[in-house]
Design a protein around this nucleic acid. Sequence first.
DNA 1: CACTTTTACTTGACCAGTCAATGATTGCTC
DNA 2: GAGCAATCATTGACTGGTCAAGTAAAAGTG
Lengths: 167, 167
Amino acid sequence: MGQRRSAIQREIRQTRPFATPEQEGVLGVLRTADVLRRHLSSLVEPHDITIQQFNVLRILRGAGASGLPTLDVADRMIEQAPGITRLMDRLEAKGLVRRVRCPRDRRQVLGYITPRGLSLLARLDAVVERGDSAALGGLKRGEALKLIRLLDAIRAGHARSQSSNSK
Amino acid sequence: MGQRRSAIQREIRQTRPFATPEQEGVLGVLRTADVLRRHLSSLVEPHDITIQQFNVLRILRGAGASGLPTLDVADRMIEQAPGITRLMDRLEAKGLVRRVRCPRDRRQVLGYITPRGLSLLARLDAVVERGDSAALGGLKRGEALKLIRLLDAIRAGHARSQSSNSK
DNA sequence: CACTTTTACTTGACCAGTCAATGATTGCTC
DNA sequence: GAGCAATCATTGACTGGTCAAGTAAAAGTG
């Protein structure tokens, strides 16, 4: 296996081939995620919101009228609690989210999406969906499904070895 | 197609199916990258280094004795210049990297990996390679290759639409 | 050779992720 | 029911990504 030269190797201008396909695969996932994140970012930023803020809004919309405690929001992201608190701070400052201390358990703080948040999401939904299609435009429908399956398998492997850990 | 329910949908406890496989694919890449990043992070952190710092070191090692200007390092990452400057600041503070203003073009600053940086990398190489194999352990060899191909295709699609942009 | 433009960084400011420590409740145990 | 542990959330400090603005040197132009 002398001179195989993948796209990544060209991108990073590295002459030596990857030690293993696994190594190349990991790097490929990381790089591709970066590309997709940028793309997504460029779609939501014009609306003065970040991807993470967008995610929180979608989660709260999903939670509906009953709201969701801060840490439950964190669970649905990859994130640790401290990040969520500050994310919510900013969303609240923008009037997209409302927080109320839960009367039944006063340790918790319930988050709710505001009507303004909902209308922002409504505008973004279509944009993002079109964006995602464009982002994977290089793939045929069947390839997209195959990709989903492979990625699921990777994450399943990790869930097994590390337990817990959602998003 | 009524009740298909993928791993991601279960993970985020979302009842509604994804609008499109493309949307699910994009989210899958992002989530998987997060998992892998954490994994990788846990491997390098014990050595008091972050993933980004590790990447810079590998790039500088690849550059060899002739060193590499700051912006060329940035090109090989996804990153903008400002981030690299500060990354190099920290690496220099740790004695893993050395910076010299280029005499031929005094606007440039050349970065070099130090012997100490090289020995750190030497220790990490094996760890990371083992880690990558474990990370993609859920995949058979052929599947890993297929994954690499699909990810390459996604990034190729973006390179076409947006030109420039390396990482 | 002065004048502008371009290139290569650097600095400042803000958002985000992570860890450690702290406060505020609630639940458990004796 | 007093005391202690566990849970929920927040704050502080640091790394990192990104944009906008600034500085310094080089390159191009008249």
